[in-house]
């Protein structure tokens, strides 16, 4: 990948992630009993970025997504929540991906990302509410997170396998 190709690719991924999170915001959450829980469609892009770009560039994609999504209809508090969630989820996905003890597919990486996104948000919530009891919501959130992470992992896996360009970039990344 030349430098220009890489820049355009980063910009494309970031743009797609922003659009996906905007669209997701406008569809009602399927988890009506747990407001705040969402599918996390934008995580597809983070997964793709992690598998086709270097760590630094994947981080840039996430950063651009958070900032732009906030500017396009977020508030300061949603910014704090989503950046804490995104940071923790990115780090955990990275850690799981680098774990070479067991064979791990994208599904595991995406599940870790989803669960730690919740951990990050609940940590911020318990900091704002000044009570650790907020963390007691974690089990419910995590079970939803594991299910959505599973679905997102399969989707991203499918994209990486069947979109030629992505497949080629994954190959480049792994060599």
């Amino acid at each position: 990948m030349t430098k220009n190709q890489r820049l355009v690719y980063i910009a494309l991924l970031a743009a797609q992630a922003v659009i996906i999170s905007l669209i997701e915001r406008s569809i009602p959450s399927p988890f009506f009993f747990m407001p705040g829980a969402k599918i996390g469609l934008a995580n597809i892009i983070t997964c793709i970025a992690l598998y086709t770009l270097s760590v630094k560039d994947a981080g840039k994609v996430v950063l651009i997504r958070i900032i732009l999504a906030t500017l396009l209809g977020g508030t300061l508090s949603t910014f704090i929540y989503s950046s804490a969630g995104a940071l923790l989820s990115f780090l955990s996905m990275l850690a799981v991906k680098k774990l070479h003890i067991l064979p791990i597919s994208l599904i595991g990486v995406s599940m870790a990302g989803a669960v730690f996104h919740n951990v990050g948000q609940l940590l911020v919530a318990s900091w704002i509410a000044q009570t650790p009891a907020v963390m007691l919501y974690l089990p419910v959130q995590s079970i939803i997170g594991i299910m959505t992470g599973f679905a997102i992992g399969i989707t991203a896996n499918y994209l990486l396998k069947h979109v030629d360009r992505l497949h080629y970039y994954t190959f480049l990344r792994s060599t």
Binding site: L102, P103, I143
Partner: peptide, 22 residues
């Protein structure tokens, strides 16, 4: 075929982590 043994382990680990505060 894409779900590997490590994924199941990660899933169990994540569940354990999420129940620790409780």
């Amino acid at each position: 075929t894409t779900l590997k043994i490590g994924d199941i382990m990660i899933m169990i680990l994540l569940l354990l982590i999420s129940f620790t505060p409780l």
